[in-house]
Amino acid sequence: MKTLLRLNFLKNRALIFATLGMHAFVALLAPYLRLSSTDSQDSAALLQGPSLNHWLGTDSLGRDVFSRLLHGGRPSLVIAFAATAISCLIGIVIGSVAALAGGWIDDALSRVIDFMLALPTLILLLLISSFFGQDPLILSVALGLMYASPIARVARSATQTLLARDFIRVARLQGGSRISILFGEVMPNVWRVMFTEVAMQFTWILLAFSSLSFLGLGASPPTPEWGLMIAESRSYMTLNPLLVIAPIMMLASLVLAIQALVDHE
């Protein structure tokens, strides 16, 4: 029992990096691997189990599940990266400006952050995507805006802590301007503190986009995407459980590996 407990997968560095490496490899190189087409339908082979031709079987339209699975992370990852970058940019700028300016500017920005935090993210995303369609750019910007507020809040308090530190005082005594102190002293250190928060945000955005796809408002068919794959196949779960289990495993392993890495650092 004790040895079993010691096999704590989330603390196994090699395993974390192997999982992340596998995901990076697949996401970057899936189009260049000699896989079956993700879209070609084989009406003679619907909902088949694993075979030599189709390693994980086929879905309800006779498409190769393995190939779709390897391609399925790309749309969510692209959007998650873009949205995280946007939320970081907005969040860190708002947060550190609020802390640096203080006074009524801080109050005003903090209330905006509070307001954003109070919005129900998923419902708002559903609204946006039903109004503006499933354009990846709009979705990235919307996700980026939605998820900027927690980053802004952490950035604000990180900046406040930093401002009380002596090396910032010395910079002021030696004539550093607010801007040069912000970018030269505060930002690099805020970024170091923010890494954890940002990595966690990335996983939340990844999950949010997959949830949208699952609800039919993220990636649009026939794009291979994990959330969408789960939605499309859940009626056939009993015929070929791999149809649902495989994309779930991919999504879960990626999210867990990122979170475990963050815990580790």
């Binding site: 002596d166 090396f167 010395v170 910079a171 005594l173 030696q174 550093g176 030269g184 690099p188």
Partner: peptide, 30 residues
């Protein structure tokens, strides 16, 4: 006027920017 009065603080762990080299810290504002 700023340069004519300088201060050194108590906590050695706090007085240098952890992200910068000594050369950078010393030359950035001076």
């Amino acid at each position: 006027v700023l340069s004519s009065i300088q201060m050194v603080f108590q906590n050695p762990d706090d007085s240098l920017n952890p992200m910068r080299t000594v050369a950078q810290s010393l030359s950035r504002y001076t």
